[in-house]
Design a binder for these strands. Structure first.
Lengths: 187, 187
DNA sequence: ATTTATCTATCTATCACTTGATAGGTGAAA
DNA sequence: TTTCACCTATCAAGTGATAGATAGATAAAT
């Protein structure tokens, strides 16, 4: 639990997260990570025995950090429309400013070659986002859960799809185009 | 140009297309393809010298077949709303019925490790879809190109995002949820 | 009509390289 | 002295790709 140890472990996870965002599960190796961190590949295995362990840990940390950023959707002090805008802007920061996809968009595409542990972490992340958005829409529109889930699915699909479009068309303007409806609808 | 020759080449492309839909560019090897077709991996190289050549050819064939399926967006005999519904249904067939992602959703995620030739084919495919949708929306809503492009981007993002959601949440019900707005808006 | 040459589609065998993973050693800290 | 965090060295498996051989079809020359 000392400085160097924890630092190395965190560095490994940081570097891995960046690699996944850029190319997905198959686009990096233990040697890539080791080189970026400044250690040898065997040392990466010391901290994370298998690639699945490593990526699952990164995904879990990502989910946890994400959950800490999400405001309580029921808090009376928060403007409901700001919740939506904040969610969209958070996504935009990843997709447009850093010009890479979100961890979960990437990993979902690689799902067929993912170890079980990673799939489970992925599912947890999706549930977190969908549940949060559903609660927000229940509050905003005073609707029942089914209808709010539909709204949540629509927005989430738009966001992930925008991420794909930006990459595929190689033009970040597509993000705002794809999200313009959601931005104006809650203003 | 004889029977057997063309057949083998087509089989290779068919098999490759299926592999890409399931796992993307990195999720199959020449040996996988060879085994599925019933030949040896060297024979695959005979028809397609490199992996990039092979995938670019598959993508080009896919784009061509797709373009043949798209009705003329300006034809007076076609109901404009049917154009939208047809487009959505075509996507749904891939994503829900076959439970895998569209070629271009997959390849876009792998873009960072794609040969240039494949990237170019990808770009052509995106342009085809966006242009077609833009023309349809210009006709439906009597708007200018900029606004129609925005609509096209929104729908395309929804479709690609729905594909991601279905896979990530492992629940095909998310497709209809994500698209419900577009289905009712043009009815 | 027969021989010769070329082309086609496949094969076997192998290349250099990368991959995730393991065994076992080293020095420092507790 | 045991644990920790790293190392060197290596493994077996898989990768894309190439070289060279072979059988059969086609075409040209004699």
């Amino acid at each position: 639990m000392k400085d160097t140890k924890v630092d190395t472990k965190s560095k490994i996870m940081d570097v891995t997260e960046a690699f996944i965002s850029q190319g997905g599960y198959g686009a990096f190796s233990f040697r890539d990570i080791a080189e970026a961190v400044g250690i040898k590949s065997a040392s990466v295995h010391y901290h994370f025995p298998t690639k699945g362990d490593l990526v699952a840990a990164v995904m879990a940390r990502y989910t946890h950090a994400f959950s800490l950023m999400l405001p309580d959707p029921c808090s009376a002090r928060v403007n409901t429309k700001d919740l939506i805008h904040g969610f969209i802007d958070g996504f935009k920061a990843k997709v447009v400013d850093q010009m890479n996809m979100s961890l979960c968009t990437m990993l979902t595409s690689d799902k067929s070659s993912l170890p079980d542990a990673v799939c489970q972490e992925l599912a947890i992340f999706y549930k977190l986002k969908l549940d949060w958005l559903t609660q927000v829409f229940m509050r905003i529109e005073q609707t029942h859960e089914e209808e709010a889930l539909t709204k949540a699915s629509q927005l989430l699909a738009c966001l992930h799809g925008a991420s794909i479009l930006v990459q595929g068309a190689n033009d970040s303007a597509f993000f705002d185009r794809a999200l313009s409806h959601w931005r104006t609808a809650y203003n």
